[in-house]
Design a protein around this nucleic acid. Structure first.
Length: 275
DNA sequence: GGGATTGTTTAAAT
DNA sequence: GATTTAAACAATCC
């Protein structure tokens, strides 16, 4: 999402939204008319990211919040290059014969409209988001997990605790830190959290430098794939050798989420207690 | 046609 | 009430 937002900011900042075609209103959390009235004729002042949301800020303070979920894409392209398939749900016309598209094969994604920043902040989901991982120092990071008894993997994915971490970066950071995904949060010592904090920041920064992670759908606003999938240590690598020890990576399900880890490098303290 | 896919919400359990 | 876990949901692909 960071890559999408940066790329969109370059492409859209200063451009006026001239027209919009709503081809699938189900992706809107407002009426077609409301979107048109609120957005058309206004310039995009900037595009930024918060958690996994891409936020389009218009010149008068109006905001469009996009959640892309699994397969959503936001693209800016030339009018003549547009192929209007059945998955293209929103089409904004821009100056210079360009268009801004929202496309989503599985229709899990959505676009939500806010008149002001205060209205955005009043949205329960937004209000409940935890801090951005890259903004936290080690002390604050450790503090998040103090007194928690749940397993570490679902806690990492909990957007109200820590914002913006998905399945990829949860698994990758746990591997870098040598922590089993089912380890209870209160069984991880201070050094463990230092390693997890370091690993998480490293994996996020490297993924951003590589232009994001593409294994099926992800592309940035210009349609370019990411490169970080070539650096995956565990994600989607079940059965393949661990890059550290050479052993086979295993896949388990933790609270309904697929989790890949190395049983040698990431041992579960709970399992060790068995006789 | 069942299972996998993901992020989030809701409900139930502790 | 807070925390944790399970289940449900969205739609599509293989």
């Amino acid at each position: 999402m960071e890559i999408v937002a940066r790329c969109l900011d370059r492409a859209l900042a200063g451009s006026r939204l001239q027209d919009v075609r709503v081809r699938h209103s189900g992706c809107l959390r407002c009426s077609d008319r409301e979107l048109g009235t609120a957005a058309l004729g206004k310039r995009v002042s900037r595009v930024r990211r918060r958690a996994k949301l891409v936020l389009l800020e218009l010149e008068d303070g109006t905001l469009l919040a996009f959640h892309l979920k699994m397969t959503g894409r936001l693209l800016v392209t030339r009018q003549e290059d547009v192929e209007l398939d059945k998955h293209t749900h929103l089409v904004f016309s821009l100056p210079d014969d360009r268009v801004f598209l929202f496309r989503d094969v599985r229709k899990f994604g959505y676009c939500r409209l806010f008149a002001t920043r205060a209205e955005l902040r009043a949205w329960p989901f937004y209000a409940g988001l935890g801090p951005e991982p890259l903004d936290l120092d080690v002390t604050d990071f450790v503090g998040l997990f103090r007194g928690r008894r749940g397993r570490i993997k679902p806690l990492l994915l909990d957007q109200t605790l820590l914002a913006g971490i998905g399945n990829i970066y949860a698994d990758e950071s746990l591997h870098l830190a040598g922590i089993h995904p089912e380890t209870p949060a209160d069984a991880i010592g201070y050094e463990g959290y230092v390693g997890l904090h370091t690993g998480l920041i490293r994996v996020l920064q490297q993924a951003i430098e590589a232009g994001g992670s593409t294994f099926s759908d992800f592309v940035d606003a210009s349609g370019t794939s990411g490169g970080f999938q070539n650096n995956f240590l565990v994600y989607r690598r079940a059965g393949q050798p661990c890059t550290s020890c050479g052993g086979g990576l295993e896949r388990i399900t933790v609270t309904g989420r697929s989790s890949v880890f190395c049983p040698v490098c990431q041992q579960n303290p709970r399992a060790e207690q068995e006789p």
